[in-house]
Design a protein around this nucleic acid. Structure first.
Length: 669
RNA sequence: GCCGACCUGGCGCAAUUGGUAGCGCAUCGCACUUGUAAUGCGAGGGUUAGGGGUUCGAGUCCCCUGGUCGGCCCCA
């Protein structure tokens, strides 16, 4: 092609004349531009643009740029692994949030020491300045070239198929390509990988902002029937400073870990004697939980909910009726067999009965509904229960109090007439969001979980699903919050909206769920008499606000980093006398606060006051009241707050007023 | 459930190549009585998660069970 020939392209939004052989290298001189977006598609910097292309530079700091950086770092990791162990077979190695991973099939799993050696080797590769060169190939040639890489061969074979999931990073759609790592000094290709790209132009651009973080096993192509490969996780950033920042963030997250804070603040524990995933709440955790529950109860009462209670075990037939035994027996504790009787010969006289620990409360609520004939005048019927359920979670998934085997749902089931679903749903959503805000979460988005076509797990007719999904979607959209689709995420009996909340350090947690259910009313044959005398079937809305109290407790612990706002704090105020003689004075103030319901303690121990202040600071007590001669003389008291700041000489009544106000207004201090 | 790592007094940690368990905090006692993050001295507390094995000898090596952690799969 003639290099002088000019073509016109749209470069960074501007019509521009460029040489017909222009590439990203010639169009961009900034070193931060690591790839191109050509007509919306990501391309290597080496890509040659064509007439009428819309071309933008992709900065390494952008979302796409970071993914490219991480993807290239994953390649360097794989090269390092194969340099050290040529027998290692390659799985896949995509970028993920904050980093990347690469899966390998190796004889012996990696050890933490291996990681150090691998980082060193990666560093060498990065410094050697290899180029990433894209090469188009075809299935036959690639299969021959990669004959020693069984997993890559499988991916080549799958390319024509549809569902390749994360492997899309390897083969993707369109042409089949291999990336060669070309060592300039040695003038040879030192490594290669089947990959869709794009990549950084040169390994040197990876710099020193990467680190290998953890080791794990992962099923090949995410299927537990497949072989487990050894996965290495890493993180990569444009600079060492950004890597450091990320590491600091991880430390901050570790400090907030509810499992750690739960032990440090004496909130709850998981005694081995009880069994995995089963917690006990200590007094300090207990009072937080009680306050959370009490407030929730009050709000439910104000909003027209009625309180019900149900047992923790039930005969099997209830869960046969509900469908749980048919669909979710795996997630339930195995049954207790009771009441069997045998004669002298050991023959069964009376068949044993299976009793199950309940995994959900809804079937019980349906029985309450059925306990009498219902009229349209009864609807909507809103039943609320703090219902403790037990689910046999696989041992490997348990995670403190956020993923346990026994937990208490703040569960409500609303039985509504079909025509009032939409109104009721939007009321529920408003109620849920308001309440979450009161607990201190304010940043939300919604997720709409729908059924996956063709999956037999989802019961009920397609028309009903369609109607339910459409209704939920309307309500979600009307809320004005961002709505994210979650295909395949629905419960087996119906679609749901879930409220995702962002915490103080930007992590999102799934909180409340609101599910529509046309199925259970059918299974339990629920009905009500309509104004015209006809029998109608109600629709159920399942709604958990905290999800589970334990989980919500854990989330709040992490959100507040243990610094619970005064209304939730286990001990709201601690009085520290400067010397013993001022203790009585503080006790006087304390009894007034106690009378007003405040959780206050006076530290009369014989520690020095500095030590007391340290202790209560570490215990994250929101208010410390300090009193000595000066305060006593003026009828005042001195505040010390968790951040170390202080307000001295506050008149007694003013101090009391301040504390009561902060508690009742649920503010953070 | 699967893969890997780990389990030492209430908590956090130590114990050269297997040689007979130490420290800090906390607890208890005594002294000190102090104005905003650790007063001093002393005492008690562990059959090293449980069980089995190898060995003259096991916290250290091997096996089983339980639990924890990081992932995978899952999450009604």
């Amino acid at each position: 092609m003639n290099s002088n020939e000019q073509i016109s392209i749209t470069l960074e939004g501007k019509d521009t004349q460029v040489d017909s052989n222009s590439t990203g290298f010639t169009l961009f001189s900034e070193k931060t531009i690591v790839a191109l977006r050509v007509n919306g598609e990501l391309k290597d910097l080496a890509h040659t643009v064509s007439e009428a292309d819309v071309v933008e530079g992709v900065s390494i700091e952008s979302v796409d740029g970071l993914s490219i950086l991480r993807h290239s770092t994953a390649h360097v990791l794989a090269q390092a692994v194969q340099n050290i162990n040529p027998e290692a077979k390659l799985g896949i190695g995509p970028p993920i949030k904050d980093g990347f991973y690469y899966d390998f099939d190796v004889e012996k799993p990696f050890t933490p020491e291996d990681l150090k050696a691998l980082e060193k080797e990666m560093d060498r590769i990065v410094r050697s300045g290899q180029r990433f060169l894209r090469r188009v190939t075809n299935e036959v040639a690639a299969s021959e070239e990669l004959r020693n890489e069984p997993y890559k061969l499988e991916l080549i074979g799958l390319k024509s198929g549809t569902d390749i999931g994360e492997a899309a990073a390897e083969v993707g759609s369109g042409e089949l390509t291999i990336y060669d790592n070309y060592d300039v000094k040695a003038d040879e290709v030192v490594w290669k990988d089947l990959c869709r790209g794009p990549h950084l132009p040169n390994t040197r651009m990876i710099g020193n902002g990467f680190a290998l973080t953890r080791l794990a096993a992962a099923y090949w192509r995410g299927n537990e029937n497949n072989k487990q490969l050894q996965r290495i996780y890493g993180t990569a950033w444009p600079s060492k400073e950004q890597l450091k920042e990320h590491q600091v963030y991880l430390e901050e997250a570790a400090k907030r870990d509810h499992r750690r804070l739960g032990a440090e603040l004496d909130l709850f524990s998981f005694p081995e004697e009880i069994g995995s995933g089963l917690a006990v709440f200590h007094p300090r955790g207990g009072i937080i939980r009680k306050v959370m529950e009490d407030y929730s109860r009050d709000r439910h009462a104000q909003s027209g909910y009625e309180f019900v209670y149900s047992p923790h075990v039930t005969k099997a037939n209830l869960f046969q009726t509900s469908g749980h035994l048919e669909w979710y027996a795996d997630g339930m504790f195995p049954p207790l067999q009771l009441d069997e009787e045998r004669d002298e010969e050991g023959n069964i006289k009376k068949q044993a009965q299976d009793y199950y620990l309940k995994p959900m409360n809804c079937p019980f609520h349906c029985l309450i509904y059925k306990s009498q004939a219902r009229s349209y005048r009864d609807l909507p019927l809103r039943m609320f229960e703090f219902g403790t359920v037990y689910r046999y979670e696989k041992s490997g998934v348990l995670h403190g109090i956020t993923r346990a085997r026994g937990f208490t749902q703040d569960d409500a089931h609303l039985y509504v007439a079909r025509e009032s679903i939409e109104v009721e749903l939007s009321n529920v959503l408003t109620f849920v969001l308001d309440l979450l805000r009161d607990y201190g979460l304010t940043d939300f988005y919604l997720e709409l979980s729908t059924k996956e076509e063709g999956n037999p797990k989802f019961v009920g007719s397609p028309e009903i699903w369609e109607e339910a999904t459409a209704t939920l979607e309307r309500v979600a959209t009307d809320s004005g919050l961002k709505l994210v689709p979650d295909p395949g995420g629905a419960a087996f009996y119906g679609p749901k909206i879930s409220v995702q909340a962002k915490d103080a350090i930007g992590r999102t947690w799934q909180m409340s769920t609101i599910q529509l259910d046309f199925n259970l009313p059918e299974r339990f044959d629920l009905e009500y008499t309509a104004p015209d005398g006809s029998k109608q079937r109600p629709v159920m809305i399942h709604r958990a606000l905290f999800g589970s109290i334990e989980r919500f407790f854990g989330v709040l612990t992490e959100h507040y980093a243990g610094h619970f706002p005064p209304w939730l704090a286990p001990v709201q105020v601690v009085g520290v006398p400067v010397a013993d003689e001022f203790s009585d004075y503080l006790h006087g103030i304390a009894s007034e606060l106690k009378a007003a319901g405040v959780r206050i303690q006076i530290d009369d121990s014989d520690e020095r006051m500095q030590k007391k202040i340290r202790n209560h600071t570490l215990a994250k007590v929101p208010f410390m009241l300090i009193a000595g001669a000066e305060d006593q003389a003026q009828g005042a008291v001195s505040f010390r707050f968790r951040d170390g700041s202080q307000t001295n000489g506050v008149p007694r009544q003013e101090a009391i007023g301040r504390i009561l106000k902060d508690i009742s207004e649920k503010v953070q201090v």
